[in-house]
Design a binder for these strands. Structure first.
Lengths: 154, 154
DNA sequence: TAACTGGAGTTCCAAGATGCAACCCTGCGG
DNA sequence: CCGCAGGGTTGCATCTTGGAACTCCAGTTA
């Protein structure tokens, strides 16, 4: 059975989860953020099967997170580059990294440190409200229906 | 073949992706954040198969994102509640919601609006650096090896 | 007392998805 | 002319999914 398609649910999380709720897609974007662009680069960095990688890259291109660019004219040679849509997934990854560091790190310490070059500090991602700048907590957030919420078919 | 296990990779994103890189897990946590606690509640809200749901809930309990609590003594009745570890996934979901709203919403507008009760505004999640409070962008973040990064076996 | 109901899961099965390894195609370098 | 590098496809055995039916158990209803 094909995995259920949640991309049309009236929920932005469900829609995002349709593309991002796949560990390979997440890791491919992460890898792309680290500068990898070529098929073999992804393959060896992630140890993913070539067929799966091929499938995922096409999906990410279809969804507009990556673009496939020919970088050599004479022979078929392509590379995959992040689009703005793809690049903006990074905050999600950084948030996951912060969560992973907090909850999934053993006594040996975190394997990865993110350095923010614009302020020159090692950083952690924090998710804040754009209005009050305070870190968010589920208990103080309510989800309401917005303009695009389907009205009860009446 | 079983899906490859990335939970021990020296990368907090890969580790987090091992649990969160599954759309059902994400949606179950989302649903739990909305207040759902019971098996049938998740089942009907998400339309997920009962077997899959059962499997995912056990996984989330094993990973410590949920706890299974008996809420009726006479008969077997359990509910699933978020732990702190599970609750702290919310910022990731909120970030995904913001991304989904920006990139996956049609002309009809967003189906969901998040209301921040502590400042009483409709909000969007923004991911900032904890040191300088500026929104982050991949191009100004470098990943470095941290203390837990395996040293090259020499 | 028998049948019914609701909650919480299992069990079964067919259709897909995954991982792995081997194979294909195209110019260039030696 | 051989081999290689880059970028994929193909085949296969094994898992995972989704759907639906079935199980258990203790109240409730008739």
């Amino acid at each position: 059975m094909r995995r259920i398609d949640t991309s049309a649910w009236p929920c932005t999380i469900a829609r995002a989860a349709d593309v991002l709720g796949d560990h390979w897609n997440l890791l491919i974007i992460r890898q792309a953020c680290l500068g990898t662009r070529r098929f073999d680069g992804f393959q060896t960095a992630l140890g993913i099967g070539r067929n799966i990688l091929s499938q995922r890259l096409s999906r990410l291109v279809d969804e507009g997170l990556l673009v496939r660019v020919e970088y050599e004219e004479s022979r078929p040679r392509y590379e995959y580059r992040l689009t703005d849509k793809g690049r903006e997934v990074y905050p999600i990854l950084a948030t996951m990294a912060a969560w992973g560091e907090r909850w999934l790190t053993g006594p040996e310490g975190t394997p990865l440190v993110l350095h923010h070059t614009s302020c020159n500090h090692d950083m952690h991602a924090v998710v804040v409200c754009d209005k009050c700048q305070e870190p968010i907590d589920v208990r103080y957030v309510r989800a309401k229906a917005g303009p695009g919420f389907p009205r009860p078919a009446s």
